Amino acid sequence: MDKIESLATQSGVDGALQRRAEQAVYRAQVYAFLSVVHLYPSENWSEDLPLAAAAVARVEGAPPWPEVQPMTQEALQMAYLRAFGAAGSLCYETEYGLPHEYRQAQELADIAGFYRAFGFTLGGAVRERPDHLAVELEFMHVLALKEAHALLTGVAEQAELCVDAQAKFLGDHLGVWIELFAQSLALNTREAPYLPLARFTVEWVRADAARLGVQLASRNRKEVNHTPFDPDFSCAACPMVDLLR
């Protein structure tokens, strides 16, 4: 945190704002780690578990860190496939509880609108839909970092804009379905690391929402129907399917 202290000193930021910025940075670190957890492990993120646990420990009001141990990348990949399957369809917000496929497109557009407003673009090495859990977690990471930077550079209005966006995104999107995701994952696996970290993610999002004054309703998977099938968001729309028939 030496860079934060240096920037705070240069900008004349008082101690209270500096502590708030530090909290935002630690929250950003946790969101970034959880984002990587919910993607196929092309790298061994489990080696960073101690760093993630240390960041969580520094966040006020954070839930307890789960008992998860580092493992080999091969073991991590096998655990991922057992938990999520090859398609990883559990990880998409708009697969849960929408009344029809047209609403799915509307929700995707709303999520993308959040991203555009804060210069968050999709693409690069990892290409996913905007409603993928890893993408939504990464967006919260970006918002927290932007909040910290605004605080440290004395742009209070920009910092509050980032805070409001975090609250609204949790209330409208990430916080609405994260519990349903963890419940669904529990049907596939009971083993570490994915189920304990999914449950931690639920508690982390809930705690962060409470900090921001957002009340999240508890939802039960059994009371939520899957969003009706839309071939535009499935393998059925791929031309390769016809070759296999």
Score class of each variant (00 low, 15 high):
100 H>Q: 06
128 E>H: 06
175 G>N: 07
234 S>A: 10
28 A>N: 10
145 L>V: 14
14 D>V: 09
74 E>G: 10
235 C>Q: 04
26 Y>E: 15
26 Y>G: 02
114 F>G: 04
227 T>Y: 11
194 Y>Q: 08
35 S>M: 11
117 A>G: 11
228 P>R: 08
233 F>W: 15
72 T>C: 01
125 A>W: 00
35 S>P: 08
11 S>R: 03
82 R>D: 13
207 A>K: 05
128 E>F: 00
192 A>I: 01
163 V>G: 02
38 H>T: 11
166 Q>P: 09
98 L>M: 06
161 L>C: 09
100 H>S: 10
5 E>M: 00
136 E>Q: 15
102 Y>G: 09
154 G>I: 10
162 C>V: 03
61 G>R: 10
196 P>L: 09
24 A>H: 05
214 V>I: 12
123 G>R: 03
166 Q>G: 09
147 E>Y: 02
205 V>L: 02
101 E>M: 06
118 F>E: 10
141 H>V: 04
166 Q>W: 06
159 A>K: 06
133 L>A: 07
150 A>C: 11
113 G>W: 07
110 D>F: 03
42 S>R: 15
193 P>A: 04
208 D>R: 05
25 V>D: 04
53 A>T: 06
131 D>I: 03
85 G>E: 12
15 G>V: 04
76 L>Q: 01
124 G>E: 10
126 V>L: 02
218 S>Y: 05
235 C>W: 12
234 S>P: 02
211 R>N: 05
28 A>D: 11
75 A>V: 02
9 T>W: 01
126 V>Q: 07
24 A>N: 04
153 T>R: 11
212 L>I: 08
106 Q>W: 07
118 F>P: 01
220 N>A: 12
33 F>Y: 15
125 A>C: 00
66 P>A: 02
203 E>I: 00
34 L>K: 11
197 L>H: 01
147 E>Q: 14
15 G>K: 04
224 V>R: 03
165 A>P: 02
142 V>Q: 14
202 V>G: 01
113 G>Q: 07
115 Y>D: 04
119 G>F: 08
204 W>M: 00
47 E>S: 06
215 Q>T: 14
25 V>C: 09
6 S>V: 08
173 H>K: 05
207 A>C: 03
118 F>D: 08
109 A>T: 14
156 A>L: 09
29 Q>T: 15
16 A>Y: 05
29 Q>L: 15
180 L>D: 08
76 L>R: 03
54 A>K: 14
106 Q>P: 00
36 V>N: 11
103 R>A: 15
138 E>Y: 05
188 N>H: 14
69 Q>L: 13
140 M>T: 10
19 R>W: 03
33 F>L: 13
155 V>G: 01
130 P>E: 15
155 V>E: 15
27 R>M: 14
37 V>D: 08
140 M>A: 12
195 L>G: 04
123 G>Q: 02
50 P>H: 06
156 A>S: 12
197 L>F: 01
88 G>N: 10
61 G>A: 13
122 L>D: 04
158 Q>E: 15
134 A>V: 06
17 L>Q: 13
156 A>K: 14
44 N>S: 08
191 E>L: 08
23 Q>G: 15
113 G>E: 13
178 I>T: 12
132 H>E: 07
37 V>S: 09
42 S>H: 14
38 H>D: 09
60 E>L: 07
197 L>M: 11
124 G>C: 01
188 N>T: 09
35 S>V: 08
180 L>E: 12
